[in-house]
Structure formats: structure tokens, C-alpha cells
């Protein structure tokens, strides 16, 4: 796979992940207005949410390693901070998915929020470089410089931002299996309430 192909591939994945996250939020809003189909479809996705979040984190990790180790795109300082946030999310979410632990979101969320904040700032200074120094240091490239901008807007920082936000959306947009019933997957739900219902 050439670098150009990899750029296109990961950019397409970013677009699909972003649209998927937006679609999930739209589904939740429709479910909130009483749309049963949206609620059922959303609940089905919700069952797989931790696995899907793991796939996003694992793909982002592999993509990040590809660009630095194979394509030789030297990571800047902010890229490293985002890597620090993204890399542990993959094993954390994998363990959470295997154990079917709905509480995993509370361990993953702080890391994903910090990563999203850094990626958001990184994306901002790519568009407004005057907010940063505009120089490269001896040890690596400037954070305002980007290696590519696919479709006119997708850079590595944008990919990271969409990745973190998609993970957060998957973990926190919850669909009750019935609109008037508590979500059995929700770790905040009183277990006695669920037992009484059944």
C-alpha cells in the first residue's frame, strides 16, 4: 500500500466514523421522540458499542504507527500527546468489550476527552498557524505543519479528533431496549429495578 493509498483509506475511514457518530446521535434524538425503529436499531448498535469503540481505537493506533514507522511522517509534540491518549484506549476497550463491562466507559472517557481536547487544539492551529510559533524545532516538525490534507480538510489531527469523538459517542449515547424501560446495559441503573421488571 502506497502512502497516498493509506492517506485516502484512513481519510475515508474518518469520514465514515464521523458520519456514523452523527448518525448515532440522530438515532438517539429520534428514539427520544418516540421512534421505535430508531430505538431498536440504536439499541442493537448500543450492544456492540464497546467493540466498535475498540475497533476505532485499534484502527487509529495502527494508522498512527503506519504513518510514523512506514511513511516516515515525523510526529510533532501534540501528535505524541494524542498518541499517549489513543494507544491505551485500544486495550482498555478490548478488555471492557470481552468482559462486557458497561463501566469501561468511565475508564476510557477521561482519556478520550483529554485526547479530543488536544486533537481539537491541534486541528485549530493547523488552520490558524499564527496561534502557534510557525517554526520547526531541532527535534521535530512544527505542530502547525501537516503532512497531508485529504478532501481539503482531513489531516492526521482531524483523524485523531474524529476518532476520540466517535469513541465518546459510542460509549455514551445509550439506547434503552424499550423506550419506557431502563437500559439493562447501563451501569447506573438500579439492579433491583431491573429485577423487579423481569
Amino acid at each position: 500500500m502506497s502512502t497516498e493509498t493509506a492517506q485516502l483509506f484512513f481519510s475515508l475511514l474518518t469520514v465514515v466514523a464521523g458520519l456514523g457518530a452523527i448518525g448515532l446521535i440522530v438515532l438517539r434524538v429520534l428514539a427520544g421522540f418516540g421512534n421505535e425503529s430508531a430505538a431498536r436499531f440504536g439499541a442493537a448498535i448500543g450492544d456492540a458499542a464497546t467493540w466498535l469503540a475498540f475497533l476505532v481505537a485499534a484502527t487509529a493506533t495502527l494508522g498512527s504507527l503506519y504513518f510514523s514507522e512506514i511513511a516516515d511522517f515525523v510526529p510533532c509534540r501534540l501528535c505524541w500527546f494524542q498518541r499517549i491518549a489513543m494507544y491505551p484506549l485500544a486495550p482498555i476497550l478490548l478488555v471492557g468489550a470481552i468482559r462486557r463491562d458497561p463501566g469501561v466507559r468511565w475508564y476510557a472517557a477521561p482519556i478520550a476527552v483529554i485526547g479530543a481536547a488536544i486533537a481539537g487544539y491541534h486541528t485549530l492551529i493547523e488552520w490558524r498557524p499564527e496561534l502557534d510559533t510557525g517554526t520547526c524545532e531541532l527535534t521535530g516538525p512544527s505542530c502547525t505543519a501537516f503532512w497531508f490534507r485529504e478532501f481539503g480538510f482531513i489531516t492526521l489531527a482531524t483523524m485523531a479528533l474524529v476518532g476520540f469523538l466517535t469513541i465518546l459517542t459510542l460509549l455514551f449515547v445509550r439506547f434503552p431496549s424499550r423506550l419506557d424501560a431502563p437500559d439493562p446495559n447501563d451501569d447506573d441503573v438500579d439492579r433491583n429495578e431491573l429485577e423487579n421488571e423481569s
Partner: peptide, 10 residues
């Protein structure tokens, strides 16, 4: 994608 190598900003 074409067979050409990518065109990085750098």
C-alpha cells in the same frame, strides 16, 4: 489512488 507516491506538504 494512483501509483504516484503521496505529496506531503513538506
Amino acid at each position: 489512488s494512483s501509483d504516484d507516491p503521496g505529496e506531503p506538504v513538506a
